[in-house]
């Protein structure tokens, strides 16, 4: 009996390992090239690890390029987007979770609609709208756009967390004389802290990764976010693979940190939204 089980088990572990190798290989290669000295990059070809490594590319990128500023800009945009979206989505998610009102299905339909139509449609009109408001080429303008794009998904996510908290809690508080808002703030919100953390993580990752609108709305190095900076660096210095990949590794760090924070909630979050990647 045990012998018979051995083969499927071995195949199962082997398949898992094969998939992990596939998932990690591109990131491994990014790291490998970022620590390979330039002369070895061409002479050693496709070796799996260079014969000696260097941190020169990272030193150059951090000291002599605009990447620290891009990094800072991206942190500002993604951080404030995450904070604002989470605040807005906690109230709107609460409304969808706790109230029965006639327009609720209209709101849900509106929010679903925003997840359906191609956002690339909005590239031109949003650019036109933000120009007279002096919000192009500005981190505030980019944040505004990202907040609106992420609110619907975050609302569904927060709603699913509120749904998991029994209604009796705030009803009891309201019988004791608290207003609903007070009950919401002092009783319900603290209970949803894990959900709030997950929402922060999801939205931060989404804003950190956004490409098309940052390309369209931002030009010039002053307020460039990471993707804009990295792509213009790639088109200008397309031979300096070591430096490009060192910059790429830097862009990966915050995304991976937030991934670790939210990966416990992935299953819940993605099934609540079931729309966003």
């Amino acid at each position: 009996m045990r012998r018979k089980r051995l083969l499927p088990t071995a195949l199962h572990r082997l398949a898992i390992l094969a998939y992990i190798a596939f998932a990690l290989f591109p990131l491994y290669w990014l790291l490998k090239v970022s620590v390979t000295p330039n002369d070895l990059l061409y002479s050693e070809g496709v070796r799996l690890w260079p014969s000696h490594m260097t941190l020169d590319h990272f030193a150059f990128v951090l000291k002599h390029s605009d990447f620290p500023r891009f990094f800072q800009n991206s942190l500002i945009v993604s951080g404030s987007t995450a904070a604002i979206v989470t605040a807005l989505a906690s109230t709107s998610g609460y409304a969808l979770s706790r109230f029965e009102f006639r327009a609720k299905y209209l709101i849900v339909a509106l929010m679903l609609l925003t997840q359906m139509f191609p956002l690339v449609m909005l590239v031109a009109p949003i650019f036109k709208m933000l120009t007279p408001l002096k919000l192009t080429n500005s981190l505030a303008g980019l944040t505004l756009v990202y907040v609106a794009f992420n609110v619907p998904f975050a609302t569904f996510l927060m709603q699913s967390f509120f749904d998991g908290i029994p209604k009796d809690l705030e009803e009891a508080a309201m019988i004791d004389g608290a207003t609903r808002f007070k009950a919401f703030r002092q009783i319900i919100l603290p209970l949803t802290l894990p959900g709030i953390a997950a929402t922060l993580g999801f939205v931060f990752t989404a804003a950190w990764s956004e490409l098309l609108f940052s390309l369209m709305l931002i030009s010039g190095n002053q307020s460039a976010t990471f993707p804009v900076g990295l792509l213009s660096f790639v088109s200008k210095f397309s031979v300096d693979f070591g430096q490009m990949m060192a910059a790429g590794v830097l862009a990966l760090i915050p995304a991976c940190l937030f991934f670790l924070l939210i990966q416990r909630y992935l299953v819940q979050g993605l099934t609540a939204g079931a729309v966003k990647g």
Binding site: P26, L30, L230, L231
Partner: peptide, 14 residues
């Protein structure tokens, strides 16, 4: 699940 966390522009470049 890690590839999901990689920003799309970086996956493309990578």
């Amino acid at each position: 699940f890690l590839p999901w966390a990689v920003p799309s522009f970086l996956s493309g470049l990578n």
